[in-house]
Design a protein around this nucleic acid. Structure first.
Lengths: 228, 228
DNA sequence: GCATTAATCGAACGATTGATTAATTTCTAC
DNA sequence: GTAGAAATTAATCAATCGTTCGATTAATGC
């Protein structure tokens, strides 16, 4: 029997583009993960059916079960890939901040940079972690809440005991402060950006870092002795 | 024909509880809104079908179309009720803060209180506004992003021109700061609360307010001249 | 070159979804 | 008390969902 027309068209398309007729597994797997990630950013994973995901990946819907067992399996794999990327970025940067340099400034700088590098991740986290319970939240707690955040927390208490940070503040609330100052603008930015004339580009990142450092240094209050 | 057993049971149940057999419209409407709100907090509106919502409200699924036209109509009505509640709380508190008292302190205090009063609303906003585009985001922008947030923004610029706030800071970034400091803990709290020994109760709200005021007053840095 | 395995497709299936509707019951007004 | 409006149910509809699976093709081992 002749191959069905759509399949034949795809075969020719692949030949034309110089791609092999079979990708060899890992390639299709990755394309599915990318398609799922894109659609999740655009409209949420819930709103993306396996047919749409597969179509965007350029394969048939059956591939999802083949590579991930189920739609849910693809969902978890996609999410974990994103979280692990963020987490490892944070971890390596935190490892490197130990010697010499001002820990708080480096903290603000690296944390903001890690977020700004892939600004869609906070939105993904908002959707899948902040907004609902479930296994994804558990994965987040395990891979972000313990190691990287534990390091940040220790850096805070260290800085307090070494006199670099005010020791009369609660370390946990200070951790919330640092996270909120760096992450929250990337959550609210896409919503209110238009009205406030804000674009989450590199310029914004620089301004945010400087603003946060100024805030941490001296607070928000006007001071007589500091007015120039 | 005799009424089906489930219907008969419900009728008797209502008699037992002293409720009338018919609620008279507004009551059922409200019960549906409450059920939808509960389920949205628990697992997201997407995950709740009309049958489940109706069951929790103690009515049949047809009531959703009867009172709200469609599932989507119920969704929007529920969301708008929550947003309007938060929004009007904020607006009235902001109206009352104008005379005399320190505007920033009042801002921090009232904003934190408004959130802490119904701590599930930030989660709802995270799910339905921060995490996805759509008409709900538009509603939020219109009813929270303009009026109440505009007031806050004006309060900030006023405070700057009157010398109560440092005028070298960007007003928009300062707005993000104030929002992040007060709202973010209520987003991340339910996720990392266990690990950090945090409970989002009234005690926490008090501590958060004091912490934020101290931060705004003097920053996070230790200062020689201020150590007692 | 032949047999085996891996990769891929697309149709079919059963479950579930939101919407609709006919029928029924209660309430209200006269 | 009876007619009609309002409220409510339960059954049903078409659409869509994720999963499963047999068929088919390409690659690999011998």
């Amino acid at each position: 029997m002749a191959p069905p027309p759509s399949q034949e068209a795809e075969r020719l398309e692949r030949k034309r583009a110089g791609r092999p007729a079979r990708e060899g597994g890992a390639e299709v797997r990755e394309r599915l993960l990318n398609a799922a990630t894109e659609l999740t950013i655009e409209r949420g994973f819930d709103a993306a059916g396996i047919r749409e995901i597969a179509e965007r990946a350029g394969v048939s819907s059956g591939m999802i079960a083949y590579y991930f067992g189920s739609r849910r399996g693809l969902y978890e794999a996609m999410f974990e890939r994103a979280i692990d990327s963020l987490s490892s970025n944070l971890a390596t940067e935190l490892d490197a901040l130990l010697p010499g340099a001002d820990p708080i400034e480096t903290l603000i700088r690296t944390h903001t940079t890690a977020i700004a590098t892939e600004p869609w991740i906070p939105q993904l986290i908002a959707r899948e972690v902040l907004a609902r319970e479930g296994s994804l939240r558990e994965h987040f707690k395990k891979h972000v809440g313990t190691e990287p955040l534990g390091l940040v927390r220790r850096a805070i208490t260290d800085a307090m005991s070494r006199g670099a940070l005010r020791s009369d503040l609660d370390p946990t609330l200070t951790l919330f402060t640092l996270l909120g100052l760096t992450a929250f603008p990337y959550l609210i930015g896409p919503v209110l950006g238009d009205q406030l004339d804000i674009e989450l580009d590199n310029t914004f990142r620089e301004r945010l870092v400087e603003h946060n450092l100024a805030l941490i240094d001296r607070g928000l209050r006007a001071r007589e002795e500091e007015l120039t």
